[in-house]
Design a protein around this nucleic acid. Structure first.
Length: 535
RNA sequence: GCGGGCGUGAUCUAGCUGGUUAGGAUGUGAGCCUUCCAAGCUCAAUGCCCGGGUUCGAAUCCCGGCGCCCGCACCA
């Protein structure tokens, strides 16, 4: 068995992960989080909140999974996410329809079979009048469509960030490798809105010396501080670099091995349809090699612009200049008397169109479109005047930087990086060295023996810990060594044992998981002692 | 999606050239024992992925489905 098989076996045996719908034969691409799994996953997500909600001072929202057709049409997902594919009947290779040569297989010239490769789950809204919809392929769009209200919420101050943790759905062609590639997965995304020409971060100095392993889009691999990477133009801007550093800090804080993290830049041809620049945080796995777990993308104005074009709703922000500036510009003025005579009722609409147009030079003729009809106007119907206006600021479509985390993959790699096998008296011994904050159970509470009032004291301690919000498990079955082993295997960082000395001086032993070292602590202080170590 | 391998209690596995009650280990539960690292004893529960076929008889052979793993493709 290799590490992956051992971990998946442990995960199933001890309640971290179960294959979904197993009694019905299972369903590829779906996994259940078991009792311990969900505790750990929640801990990971809460740690993530600690970074983005508390430290970055962002806010979290929660938007629907079911997304109307129009939203994903505008964002580009409908066109980019559903591919028409062709499979060669002769050699079995698959292609995009555009790649075909005269309808034949470009490799062997064989006949092909066309089909739709739809990566989004389709559904319908409403029982009677059915409106097409999809399960969201990313949580981001829910944030983008709320932009005008969020902009108000943040009192129009940029930059600001909005996060969302939730499920995303992709109908993968062949999901595999446990929870590495799921059809329904958990993602944590932050959308940070910037002024396009100011992608700086106020705390950049705090992380600028962070050394990162980078793989650039021309396959150059190097270790470099993020400050230098920005200076040399490898990373497009400070904000992108800053969130790369934050990502690395987050990953190490949840138990990912620092040496097994690198950032790889997407090549031009692998960039998603919405991204200008993208760096993936990849995590190294013995079994799978480097695997993408976080994508940090500069989405520029793509999404807000798309939704603005689709709906006509103003998705722009306003930036006030330090000093109002006076600008000279040319404007078009409609001559209503001439227009009225010639175009009658249409004259008003023509004026509206004319005055919307921007112009830099003198022109003799202008075309406008009114009610689908194209009308050419010469100078008899308009004048061009130069005016001086005072501008107090400008409107712009914000740019978005998006760190997007695949929680399930991170979950797996935490298990892989912390799975330790040692020997104990010739026997194989398994230990999960999870960070205390991430461990599903924080403390095991044991009576050394099941008599003389020891169990009662241990029960009291368990209750006390739980009252303090600490996940503690009481266990009196089997030998003390077996109980330690059970806790070590699920990564419980501390075990508390009540012994005869407890009855004399009120102290209990606390055993450290990784060293098996023991100390004595007053039983009244145990909750506090643990609390200090799990936040 | 294509090709290959595999599918036995919760886990790991023996059996798979067809033939008694499918064996073991780990784990689990109950009881005993136990003064700190998977000790021991007794008892117990839980299994041949699903469906069809061949056969007197199928965990075993054949077909289909599902699942898992690997390679190719896919992974915006």
């Amino acid at each position: 068995m290799d590490a992956y098989e051992k971990i998946m076996s442990l995960a199933k045996r001890r309640g971290f992960l179960y294959p979904s719908y197993e009694i019905y034969g299972g369903e590829a691409g779906f996994y259940d989080y078991g009792p311990l799994g969900i505790l750990m996953k929640n801990n990971i997500e809460n740690k993530w909140r600690e970074f983005y909600l508390l430290k970055e001072k962002f806010f979290e929202i929660s938007t629907p999974v079911i997304t109307p057709y129009d939203v994903l049409k505008a964002s580009g997902h409908v066109d980019e996410f559903i591919d028409e594919i062709a499979t060669c009947k002769k050699c079995g290779a698959s292609f995009k329809v555009e790649e075909l040569k005269e309808g034949k297989c470009p490799l062997c010239g064989g006949d092909v079979e066309k089909g739709k490769l739809n990566l989004m789950f389709e559904t319908y809204i409403g029982a009677k009048k059915k409106e097409q919809a999809f399960l969201r392929p990313e949580t981001a769009q829910g944030i983008f469509v709320d932009f005008p209200l969020l902009y108000e919420f943040f009192r129009k101050k940029m930059p600001f960030g909005v996060i969302q943790i939730g499920k995303g759905f992709r109908n993968e062609v062949s999901p595999r490798q446990g929870i590495i590639r799921l059809r329904e997965f958990s993602m944590a995304e932050a959308e940070i809105f910037f002024e396009p020409d100011n992608k700086k971060h106020e705390n950049f100095d705090m992380v600028k010396n962070e050394e990162m392993l980078l793989v650039t889009d021309n396959d150059e691999e190097l270790k470099i501080s993020i400050e230098k990477a920005v200076e040399k133009g490898m990373i497009g801007n400070e904000a992108l670099a800053y969130y790369m550093a934050i990502t690395k800090n987050f990953l190490t804080s949840v138990g990912i091995d620092e040496k097994k993290i690198r950032f790889r830049q997407h090549k031009k041809d692998e960039l998603a349809h919405y991204a200008n620049e993208c760096w993936d945080a990849e995590i190294y796995s013995e079994r799978f090699g480097w695997v993408e777990c976080v994508g940090i993308a500069d989405r520029a104005a793509h999404d807000l612009e798309a939704h603005m074009n689709a709906t006509g709703v103003d998705m722009r922000a306003f930036k006030k200049y330090d000093e109002p500036i006076k600008v000279k510009k040319k404007i078009i003025k409609a001559k209503m008397d001439a227009l009225g005579k010639t175009f009658k009722q249409k004259a008003k609409k023509i004026r509206e169109e004319l005055e919307k147009m921007k112009i830099n030079d003198e022109v003799e003729k202008i075309k406008v479109t009114v009610d689908g009809e194209e009308i050419e106007l010469d100078r008899e119907f308009f004048t061009i005047e130069e005016v001086e206006e005072t501008e107090t600021g400008k409107k712009f479509i914000p740019h978005v930087i998006e760190p997007s985390y695949g929680i399930d993959r991170i979950f797996y790699f935490i298990l892989e990086h912390n799975y330790k096998e040692t020997e104990k008296e010739g026997e194989n011994y398994v230990l999960l060295t999870l960070p205390p904050e991430i461990a599903p159970v924080k403390a095991g509470v044991f009576p050394l023996v099941n008599k003389d009032g020891l169990p009662e004291i241990a029960r009291e301690i368990e209750e006390e810990l739980r009252k303090n919000g600490i996940m503690a498990i009481y266990d009196d079955r089997g030998s003390i060594g077996r109980r330690y082993a059970r806790m070590d295997e699920i990564g419980t960082p501390f075990c508390i044992t009540v012994d005869y000395q407890t009855k004399e001086d009120g102290t209990v032993t606390i055993r450290y998981r990784d060293t098996t070292e023991q100390i004595r602590v007053d039983k009244k202080k145990v909750a506090e002692w643990i609390k200090e170590r799990i936040v």
